[in-house]
Simulated assay, not measured.
Amino acid sequence: MRTAEATGTIELPEGITKARQGGLITVQATLRRPVAMGGGTHFTIRDNGKAMGFGLGLTAR
């Protein structure tokens, strides 16, 4: 997969309200629709075309 538009929600860990630039946190993302993405897939989180974060998919349910 090269590019996909997927809408969803991201849950931050308990006690975390935001992540600092360059920080490393583990989040849980829930997408509205299934997306073909296996563990180990890199992704970018964008808002209005601006990169807000990057990640590595670890598990899919």
Rank of each mutant, 00 (worst) to 15 (best):
G53P: 09
M1F: 13
V27T: 11
Q21C: 05
G53K: 02
A60I: 14
K50A: 14
A36P: 05
A19D: 04
F43E: 06
I25D: 00
A29V: 13
T3W: 00
A51Q: 09
G57M: 15
R61S: 06
G22D: 03
T44K: 11
Q28Y: 08
L56M: 14
R20C: 00
L12C: 07
L58W: 04
G38H: 05
M52W: 06
I45Q: 02
T7H: 14
Q21L: 15
I45C: 03
G49R: 07
A29N: 03
K18W: 05
L24R: 13
K50W: 06
T3H: 01
I16N: 05
H42N: 13
F43Y: 12
G57I: 15
G49P: 08
A51G: 07
K18D: 11
I10Y: 10
N48H: 04
T7M: 11
L31E: 09
G15D: 00
L12P: 02
I25R: 00
R20S: 06
G39K: 02
T59Q: 10
F43N: 01
I45R: 07
V35C: 02
A29C: 10
E11F: 04
T9Q: 13
G8L: 02
T44N: 13
H42K: 14
E11L: 09
A4Q: 08
Q28I: 14
A6L: 09
M37V: 12
E14G: 05
T9D: 09
G22K: 03
H42L: 11
A51K: 10
V35S: 01
E5I: 11
A29E: 04
G38M: 03
R33Y: 08
